[in-house]
Each structure stands twice: as C-alpha cells, then as structure tokens.
Design a protein around this nucleic acid. Structure first.
Lengths: 136, 136
DNA sequence: ATAATTGCAAATGCTTTGCTTGTGA
DNA sequence: TCACAAGCAAAGCATTTGCAATTAT
C-alpha cells in the first residue's frame, strides 16, 4: 500500500517533514475513519515522540490542501479519511458506529437541482444516513 | 403567534417552569435558527436573570422531548428550531449564513432505498446543502 | 415536605495557540 | 542562515455539571 497522501502533498507543494510523512503514511493505510486521538495512537507506534498538537496541525494542513477529508458525524469528534477520486457519502450504523460509504448519482443530481431552484449554486453538501442493520 | 412549544410540552408532560416557558416562547416566535447565545440574549430581554446554563439545559430538554430540533451546521455552534410537522432539510448560504429550508420527497425516498440496499433501516439522516447565491 | 430546578462557577472535552527549541521538500 | 515546524503546556470555546439556594405542572 503506497503513501498516496504523501504523493499528493508533493504534487501540491506541501512541505513534508518526518512527522507529516508518518501521519500521511498512517492515513493512507487506514481503511476506516479515525479521529485525531486514534491517528495519534497509530502514529505513535512509528514515532513515540510525536505530539498530538502536531497531529492536529497536520490533519488541518492536509485538509486545507484537499488531500484528506474531515467529517463531523453526529455526536462524535471529527474523523478523517484520505480524499478519494470519486465522491461518496456515508451511512453510519447507529448501534456499532461502523461507517459505510456509498455513492448515489441520483441524489447528487437532485441536490444540484434543489439548490438551483432556490437560486443557489451548490458549492458543498453533507449527506449522512443513520441506520440500524436489518437482520435476516 | 402562539406558544406552540409550550403546548407540545404540556401534551408530553414536560414540566414547565417560568424560565422554560420563556425559552419556549422565544423559540416559538423565532423564524430563524438561533444558537444558544442568541436564545439567551432574546430570553434575557424578558428575564434578565436567566442564566445561560438554564438555556442550555432547556434546549436539551426540549430536544429530548422532540419539540425542538438541533442542527450542527459546518463550522458553527449548535442551532435550534421548533420542530415542524413536515420534515425539511437546509440550504446554507456560505456567504451570508442565511438558512433556507426545503423539502424534496425524491431525495427522501432515495435515501431510504440506499439504506435498504445496504441492509439498513434508515433511522435518521442529515442533509445540508452549502451554496452561493446566483445573481441574475 | 421534598423532588426538581436554578444560578453560579468550576470542570469538561476537543481543538488551537504562544513560545522556545529544533530542523531542513 | 532563517523561515518554518515540533513539542509542550496553556488558552479557547462550547457545553456540561456539582452544589447550595430557591421553587412549586
């Protein structure tokens, strides 16, 4: 698994220090949506000296550079994920906290239409579904 | 303009003190989506002694009773509005902060379908559009 | 009488920041 | 060399909470 975040940073001219490279590595290898504490824990395995302030500063830097995405799901602290090529939204399992990504072009299109109908250009949006697993 | 929140509280058996009645009144008369500071400011005009802690406690109580709705829009503190009969979502003007409510049944239906397709029963959702006004 | 509520200030929890020391895309 | 970054602890901010005093759907 290669460090896609580091690559993107290089492309964008984001200066990469050792600590930032580690955060980039850990985030690139994460399949889930860790919060800052969890990121700090994971990075600490590679560099036990890194401070949580640096992790906070780094995720913010990455977010501003557009290489990672921040999510504030209901009732939780901020979570981060590597930016993907294709836009997606999230369904959160209200019982387990598990996060499932999904794509739905129809909803996307309707959102743009709704905004236009109201006289707005859609710049950003947030769509989160909260549900409980159907047992079969 | 009558105090619809107070009425709903009575119906639900929520004990109403003088302070709670004032918060209910102010929220019932609000057409916007005030945050707790703003609510406190508005209630203070009616009772200069009321503390912000009471406002916090009251909006939480009302929210748990289902008579008001809380919204955490991006980058802002929590905002509140009186619960409406008909569900609606929000479009936020990224330049002015203005909040526009909208209803779209097609999106609602698609959300339920998406959740089901993933094996979930949709319990709750959050849809926010962020846009900038198109000048004509 | 008494269980609930208030006001106040202190405590929380997450995140940011000032400052000094360290570093090098 | 020297602008930028890191580490640490302190500060910020929105919100919650402990507690003594007050109130009463």
């Amino acid at each position: 698994m290669k460090n896609i975040i580091e690559e993107k940073c290089l492309k964008k001219g984001v200066r990469l220090t050792d600590q930032r490279k580690l955060v980039a590595k850990v985030m690139s290898e994460s399949e889930d949506h860790p919060d800052v504490d969890e990121l700090h824990r994971r990075v600490s395995d590679l560099d036990s000296k890194i401070s949580i302030a640096t992790v906070y500063r780094t995720v913010k830097l990455f977010e501003e550079a557009g290489v990672v995405a921040k999510h504030d799901f209901k009732g939780n602290k901020a979570r981060y994920e590597s930016t993907t090529d294709e836009h997606h939204d999230h369904l959160i399992d209200i019982n387990t906290g598990e996060i499932i990504e999904f794509v739905n072009e129809d909803i996307e299109k309707l959102q743009t239409e709704v905004a236009e109908k109201l006289g707005y250009k859609l710049v950003d949006h947030r769509l989160e579904l909260y549900g409980s697993k159907i047992k079969k």
